[in-house]
Simulated scan of single mutants.
Amino acid sequence: MLAAFFKLGLTSFGGPVAHLGYFRTEFVERRRWLDDRSYSDLVALCQFLPGPASSQVGMALGLGRAGWLGALAAWAGFTLPSAVALILFAFGVAEWSGLASSSVVHGLKVVAVAVVAQAVMGMAKSLCPDRLRAGLAVSAALAVLAVPTALGQVAVIALGGLVGRFAVRVDQLQPATHRDYGVSKTVGATLLVLFGVLLIGLPAFAAATGSMVASAIAVFYKAGALVFGGGHVVLPLIQSGVVPTGWVSNDTFLAGYGAAQAVPGPLFTFAAYLGAAMHAPLGGWVGGFTLLLAMFLPAFLLVAGALPFWETIRQRGGVQQAMGGVNAAVVGVLVAALYDPVWTSAIHTKADFGLSLAAFGLLVFGRVSPVVVVAAAAVVAGALQL
């Protein structure tokens, strides 16, 4: 179990859609742990929930195969390679003070513009198929630019769900037989309640104690709990929580985000980099793994808690409509993040724009691997001293 997911954690480049393809090849076709119908049903659940969809699929696969320890092994194997690589990168940024502002790291920030732009374009195409949802996305972007705080982003997503509940039209899903993952409805309900308690309780505890550690855990737990649409959407939620507070500088933040494009596995391991890059009492390995766990904990609670209730939940038309509005609002949040902080912090000259445009063309039209594009941008920026 651990070895199978560790291999995928070392080799799964290309984002969550590619990860799901790797999982299907390994666990449906090669190992035959489940059939195509069960796998598709599981993917539908994890796309429906907030959090890192590919990691949640991996957790559920491990849970169905070997119980709770299987879920832990699946998560650890798939997540640790990229998390360790990003923590080591954070040590490099801390050791060499000029690294965060070097031309090579500036290249990582520039290519982040292309990566986020590609994500915006792809998500808009699939999540905003009509005028209403396109309008929701534009309105959400304007609102987040006007109120650039974590609270503003959460409010926009909530309002998107409310509008979607009463205005979005979606096709009714066909009933399907759901696979048993060994989680009872009682245990599932307990996990969902715990998810909600932590979502509300962690910020309250942090405010009451004034603890920097508790505050950071609350920020990353909330980001992991409220992010719909893939890892790129976590960018604005975390940025508004860690940069204005001074926990990391904006240059350090964007350098790590650029580096995260070059490692395999889930983009949510960006949390490990930030935890390692922070000052005491966080920082280093302890900080990296603490915030990594805080980011992924809500994903585990949600997927394990929802599995026993999945078919009932997904057939409710109101839930599907609300999710349509939420997803459209998420596109708007990411559009706002594309401008600030990604564009404003990286694009200062015509050369910056040209390098970002070239990276975008390679990603979208050339279909070149993000790993190759990120590496090339860093090399070009270093050579040209951008």
Rank of each mutant, 00 (worst) to 15 (best):
E311F: 02
L34H: 13
R133H: 12
A262Q: 13
G70P: 02
L72V: 15
A124M: 14
A206G: 07
T11L: 15
G317D: 10
R367L: 11
A259S: 01
A53G: 08
W310D: 05
F48D: 03
G354E: 03
S369V: 07
E29K: 11
G324T: 05
V371Q: 04
L293K: 00
P175D: 12
A346H: 05
A337W: 09
S103V: 09
Q56P: 00
G241Y: 10
S54P: 03
T344H: 09
F289M: 15
V193P: 02
A44N: 08
A112C: 11
F48I: 01
A358P: 08
V243E: 06
T177L: 06
A255Q: 02
S40T: 12
L362R: 01
V227N: 08
N327W: 09
F205M: 14
A255I: 02
P52M: 01
A85V: 10
G62Q: 05
L192K: 11
V193E: 00
S97F: 00
A294M: 13
L173Y: 06
A94M: 07
A90Q: 04
A206T: 05
Q118K: 13
G288V: 07
A223P: 08
V144L: 09
G92H: 03
S240I: 02
A114T: 06
L297S: 06
A134W: 05
V115A: 15
A3C: 03
F78C: 08
I87Y: 04
A271I: 03
I200W: 15
G229E: 13
G283T: 12
M123Y: 06
L127N: 05
L384A: 14
A73W: 13
A207K: 13
C128I: 07
F296H: 07
A189L: 15
T11C: 13
N250S: 14
K125P: 02
T209P: 08
Y39G: 02
D352M: 05
A377M: 14
V113Y: 08
W68H: 12
L267N: 06
V286Q: 13
L192I: 12
V17Y: 00
V120G: 03
G287C: 07
V138N: 10
L301Q: 09
A375F: 07
R32D: 07
A359K: 08
V144K: 11
S55N: 00
A90K: 10
Y39C: 10
G70L: 11
Y273A: 13
A155N: 04
R179N: 01
A359Y: 01
Q315I: 14
C128H: 00
V28N: 08
P244M: 10
A255L: 10
F6H: 02
E311M: 01
R32H: 14
V373E: 04
G317F: 02
V187Y: 03
M278Q: 03
A114N: 04
A359N: 11
S211C: 15
A272E: 00
Q153V: 08
V168Q: 10
Q239V: 07
D130I: 06
H232L: 02
G98S: 13
V319M: 12
V374F: 10
A100I: 11
V243H: 08
A276P: 05
L338Y: 00
G58K: 09
H178G: 12
A358M: 11
